[in-house]
Design a protein around this nucleic acid. Structure first.
Lengths: 230, 230
DNA sequence: TAATTTTGTGTTGTTTTTACACAAATTAAG
DNA sequence: CTTAATTTGTGTAAAAACAACACAAAATTA
């Protein structure tokens, strides 16, 4: 039998978006050498637990949330000292959630759970800043070729919400007219008949929804989502 | 201390290309229950060995090759029975090599090493066919937005070689004139003054090389490689 | 009532993409 | 040696996509 003494963990980089700011979820460690340090939600997997289940479990336990979108990001196992106690290889997952849908609730290993502005992150434990950096890149590039932005928004949203999400995450200006034209041309965003005025002044706008069924359908017909702007 | 009893392995999906055919490297297992079965090169990692080193070591040991391009693909750990002996989580790597550069040489755990036509793969051990499928998709999509095709070709190649590589891997026709125009417009492929006639008849062609330094340089200037054709 | 804010909409010039055909250099066959 | 076959090499025109740009409508606030 192989003499291997390595532990396996999962970690999740969960992004949330609200009013022009991109957040990432972190939890405050309750136990161990890094007690009180902020780290990504995650932990060791159980012997008979699929990786993906482990991530979902940790997110439920440590922060009380269920994400909208979840995919494997990368496995961190080149730095054999990334955990100073013993060797741990971590499979990092990338997730999206609408923060409004949950009240964070820390439990088990986590003393607290909090949203951090991605632009003003503290130093987290382990190599978790590195993980977030990679996830952030993934988010930016994926936003342009897969309609995952909707997983960060309310089910019904104003066109300006979508627009602002793209602007702030991609960190560039987008022409409102061209953006709207492009998105609508895909036929995966439908206009509801609801009209709302958000907070302050200005003309009320119509609410829109993302038609996921339609998206899945046209995917089969070789549709390619693609938002790229100068 | 955590009671975790899971082993970690790496596996490599190594693609090779020759004369219009895409190959994947497999090795014949020497030991164990799956003795004689063809599987992907790979194996358990050592306690203090970075993942990437493990892959390179296994490729050296089991097949005698060093690849041109290597990147992490995905980690397979949702199916807890993917290895029937005990739970093994495998980190799969995606690699490219020019088969002409090496004579395959099986050793250690491998009884034999061979190139298999990707279009006519036998059933391999474990979940390795699934891994290949995923890697194949990655190859196809990556070919369109990163100049990795060159890692499958000789250092000096005919334009038609590059063209045929794209045609055969992407499984579609490409207009020769438009393809050449597009590639040359990037300025990362340079014409040598060598002229060769390959094998049979026809007008001799000039040899070209991929200018990696130039590519890396213009990458910094926000260059985006992109080959997409109807 | 006027000023401010936000939504909603079309056109035009520029660039990129697509579609397409014939001459030049060589080998093979008659 | 002449003709046929094969492969390389090249340009243009029509169509589609993209980029740039401004003003009216509906509401709130002053």
């Amino acid at each position: 039998m192989i003499d291997q003494n390595i532990k396996i963990a999962v970690d999740a980089i969960v992004f949330g978006y609200e009013k022009g700011t991109l957040y990432v979820l972190a939890v405050q460690q309750r136990f161990g050498k890094l007690a009180d340090r902020w780290v990504l939600p995650g932990g060791f997997i159980l012997n008979d637990e699929p990786l993906i289940n482990a991530v979902e479990r940790e997110l439920r336990e440590e922060a009380g949330i269920t994400v909208n979108y979840l995919e494997q990001l990368a496995t961190f196992g080149d730095n054999v000292k990334r955990d100073e106690r013993f060797r741990v290889i971590s499979v990092a997952y990338f997730a999206l959630v609408n923060p409004k849908n949950f009240v964070l609730k820390a439990d088990t290993d986590a003393k607290d759970a909090k949203w951090f502005d991605v632009a003003q992150l503290p130093v987290l434990g382990y190599d978790h800043n590195e993980m977030i950096k990679l996830a952030h890149q993934r988010l930016k590039s994926k936003l342009t070729y897969q309609p995952i932005g909707f997983d960060l928004l309310d089910q019904e949203f104003l066109f300006s919400d979508l627009e602002n999400l793209y602007c702030s995450i991609l960190e560039r200006d987008i022409d409102r007219r061209n953006f709207r034209k492009k998105i609508l041309s895909f036929g995966i965003v439908t206009e509801t008949d609801k009209v709302v005025k958000i907070g302050s002044s200005g003309r009320p706008g119509k609410l829109f929804t993302f038609d996921k069924a339609k998206y899945n359908q046209i995917l089969k017909e070789n549709f390619q989502f693609d938002i790229r702007f100068a």
